[in-house]
Amino acid sequence: MAADPVYLDHNATTPIAREVAEAVWPHLTQDFGNPSSASVQGRRARVAVDRAREQVAALVGAEPDEIVFTSGGTEANNIAIRGTARHLTTRVAVTSCVEHPATAAPLAHLQEHHGWQVHELPVDGECRVRLDALPTGAIGLGTLILAHNETGAIQPVAQLAERVHRLGGLVHADAAQAVGKIPVDVDDLGVDLLSIAGHKLYGPKGVGALYVRRGTRVSPVVLGAGQEGGLRPGTENVALIVGLGVAAEVAGQLLSAEVERQAALREALWDRLARAVPGLVRVSPEQACLPNTLMVSLPGRLGAQVLEAVSDVSASTGSACHAGVHSPNAALLAMGLDADTALGALRLSLGRSTSTEDVESAATALARGLVAL
């Protein structure tokens, strides 16, 4: 039986941690109570949900009552953006031009259906938003990805928050790609809302959380009963919520060591590839970058073809394919890269299971594929 490819796609999703899987299973079987029920089983479920709320809050420096459980980062972003918009009199939003669709689409909805103005700030050559392009008038909402999902660039969220607050607005950060990979503290960032996705930090898919600072007015975007403080109606998915809580606790325990270890492996991977592949471009910034993320490109090569030719590495490309036609990633073009470089991009994202041997094996295979095509 052939060995599985080296998995360098942790920014797409992470495997469920063993501790998480063990915690989830009982709540799929014997501990099946409804947290809203007064039964013995329901009270046990409520205790489990409350414990998970404490665990998630601790990871981001929040209070438990500021955590709302959701189905994932996309729903969290929608509640944060669309749910606060209803309470804001200034219908002006600022964001970056490199946001995830889970942020860009709700903003487009506000623009199309509710008369909002949306200012997409440009980025520099390291994929970081240019705050010097902020509009000077009043701002209702600022929303910015904390760590870019493709390049790994960490954005100046705290600086944005300071300026937007000074102009009278609220600030939301999409931290789905950051939480569990780098230290995240809501007070240090100064944000009013922050989104978390479970499957990005070794938790289950289909669960996430939204941090809502006390006093921030938010309305639900789905109507129903009063669960999650009325912001996310529907019976709580206790098993997945418990899994997210354990994933958050484990991430906090491992964070410091894993940041250092994965950053060292990332640099080793870059060194191996750069020596073996003449002309290779490092797209990810060297500083203020997710420690696990390395995006590279060889201009003139098509990233998708490289991955097709290298069957022993799992990774992602920086381009999209529709009907057999490849188009360059818009975020890379916004950085100032030419189309050839953008089309050649490969995103290599490491994780807790990535070893030195994995890096060596992947570097050899990728170098062979890049040079051969």
Rank of each mutant, 00 (worst) to 15 (best):
L298H: 10
A257G: 11
A197Y: 10
D187Q: 12
L170S: 12
V281T: 04
G73L: 00
T216E: 08
R44F: 01
G61N: 01
R43G: 10
R261K: 02
Q159Y: 06
T235R: 12
L160R: 06
P204G: 06
N78G: 01
L273E: 02
E267H: 05
I154E: 14
A257M: 04
R352Q: 07
T14V: 13
V179W: 03
Q253N: 13
Y211W: 08
P204T: 07
G140I: 11
N34F: 08
D132F: 08
L59H: 02
L110R: 04
Y7W: 11
G152K: 09
V242W: 05
A102E: 08
T29I: 13
N77F: 03
P183K: 00
L343Y: 08
G318V: 02
L290E: 08
S284T: 03
S39Y: 09
L88D: 11
A315M: 10
Q253C: 10
G303Y: 06
V222L: 07
S36C: 14
L210S: 09
L255G: 09
E63Q: 13
R266K: 09
R130K: 15
A58Y: 15
V129I: 13
L131T: 06
L193M: 15
L244S: 12
Q55H: 15
L88S: 08
A105V: 15
D65K: 14
A197D: 04
Q305D: 12
P5W: 05
D4Q: 15
R272P: 05
E286D: 13
